[in-house]
């Protein structure tokens, strides 16, 4: 086995790769939020940025493949590790008090992650598949002002807004543990900065999902 394969199939290597993909997704989510938030401030700005992101060669053919790989890796490895971890304990405890020594978020990453996966399926159905169809299957003429209208239309449906909001609650729970855990997995832990990372993680886990919920509600309510 090559040393590289050996490294990334080891328990520590797998967690390292999980953490790297997580940190990449944290940065991606932040930029996604900032772009989405412009839709609240200015339809024109949102359309301009969306058009740029949807047509820029670097974004489309360099960053997007990294994102797709990161998302798939994070989900697949998340489930692989979960199966391995479950196999490491054949018989469960008759009495187990996990809440005495760890947070709910940390023990249930697989469930919050699963809800996020379901949300992504809906999100891809709503936006990504129509986008791919628009550009590469139907090859419709490019219209740099279409993005705002497409998004607002999706948020007319109260059920969809509800599902989005619920999903973001689970995203928040996932990030409550995941943010700081990623730093630990890459070995970044020190009394100088770990308390700050934990606080930043909690803030991020609250502000970003709450912000996404606000955007969905804002467009739903203003369109009424």
């Amino acid at each position: 086995m090559s040393w590289l394969k050996q490294t990334f199939t080891s328990s520590i290597g797998r967690k390292f790769a999980m953490a790297l993909s997580a940190l990449f997704l944290v940065i991606f989510l932040l930029q996604h939020f900032i772009i989405n938030f412009t839709s609240v401030l200015s339809e024109k700005t949102f359309n301009e940025i969306s058009h740029f992101m949807g047509t820029n060669v670097l974004v489309q053919f360099a960053l997007q493949p990294v994102l797709i790989f990161g998302v798939i890796y994070h989900f697949v490895m998340g489930f692989v590790l979960e199966i391995k971890n479950r196999n490491a304990r054949a018989i469960k405890y008759a009495m187990n008090k996990g809440s005495e020594n760890s947070t709910w978020f940390s023990r249930n990453m697989i469930y919050s992650g699963f809800v996020i996966l379901l949300f992504l399926c809906l999100h891809f159905y709503d936006f990504w598949i129509p986008e791919i169809s628009h550009k590469y299957i139907e090859v419709l003429p490019e219209d740099s002002t279409r993005y705002f209208g497409e998004m607002v239309e999706k948020f007319h449906d109260p059920l969809r807004v509800g599902l989005y909001a619920l999903s973001f609650v689970f995203l928040s729970l996932h990030l409550m543990h995941g943010f700081q855990s990623a730093f630990q997995s890459v070995g970044a832990r020190h009394s100088k900065y770990t308390p700050a990372i934990k606080k930043l993680g909690t803030l991020y886990a609250i502000i970003i999902p709450a912000g996404f919920i606000f955007i969905a509600l804002y467009h739903h309510l203003t369109a009424l």
């Binding site: 080891s10 520590i12 391995k84 490491a88 020594n101 760890s102 940390s106 990453m109 855990s181 630990q184």
Partner: peptide
């Protein structure tokens, strides 16, 4: 670490338990 993995222990989820 190799021996730890070979023994069949699980992976660390950083729960801190």
């Amino acid at each position: 670490v190799q021996q730890m993995d070979d023994e069949g222990f699980g992976n660390c989820s950083n729960t801190g338990a």
